[in-house]
């Protein structure tokens, strides 16, 4: 398996930031109420991840050890603010519905974790690819959770009605408790898939 393939597998499955590393729980729970929000949030975070990983990797030799976290946060905050302006200008509806959660990408621990754990130790292209794969893992996890929540709470996907009107809507799914329940179930399913075929440890 080439390193590129392994990076994709890591981002999407083995080290999926949301479902395996359990990073970025707050935006996951908050923005997974609808598919539109989930995709918007996922893509915004992915864009920031790619850019910040690229920049951190390029500057890794110049940034002194002592202030690296502060420097990373400045870099990340810069990209997040830029993304925020761009969304407000070109996708105002999405910007409105994601609201506070776009600026909050600054403190999304997935992004800081990748800057610290990967980009500050690897080359520029590898780091950018890491941003892409991790961002995809985050986006797919968000989409999975939000698809279940939107279907059960409103019977729709991307705002379009999918289930028949007769299907009862479960209001709690749109609210935080529903988010926790669905996220828990999705994480469990993910673990079951990853552990399939592995021998159980002896009791």
């Amino acid at each position: 398996m080439t390193q590129t393939m392994r990076q994709f597998k890591n981002g999407l499955i083995d080290q999926n930031p949301t479902l395996v590393l359990l990073l970025g729980m707050c935006p996951t729970l908050a923005t997974s109420t609808s598919m539109t929000n989930a995709v918007g949030m996922g893509l915004a975070a992915t864009a920031v991840l790619i850019c910040s990983n690229f920049a951190v990797s390029a500057l890794r030799k110049l940034i002194p050890e002592k202030i690296r976290i502060a420097a990373f946060v400045v870099i990340i905050a810069g990209f997040v603010t830029a993304v925020d302006y761009l969304l407000q200008a070109f996708v105002p509806a999405l910007s409105e519905s994601l609201g506070m959660f776009i600026p909050l990408i600054v403190v999304n621990c997935i992004i800081l974790a990748r800057a610290e754990a990967f980009a500050s130790k690897n080359g520029v292209m590898r780091s950018a690819l890491d941003g892409l794969t991790m961002g995809m893992g985050f986006t797919l996890a968000l989409m999975t959770v939000s698809a279940i929540r939107e279907l059960l709470s409103a019977g729709s996907l991307f705002g379009f009605r999918v289930l028949p009107e007769a299907f009862p809507s479960i209001g709690i799914m749109a609210q935080p408790p529903g988010g926790f329940i669905v996220l828990g179930v999705v994480i469990a399913v993910m673990q079951a898939i990853r552990n399939r075929g592995k021998a159980r440890p002896a009791a």
């Binding site: 110049l62 940034i63 002592k66 202030i67 502060a70 420097a71 400045v74």
Partner: peptide, 11 residues
């Protein structure tokens, strides 16, 4: 001084 310089440049 270098820490300050790097942060000032970066910001």
């Amino acid at each position: 001084p270098n820490l300050v310089l790097v942060m000032v440049l970066l910001t």
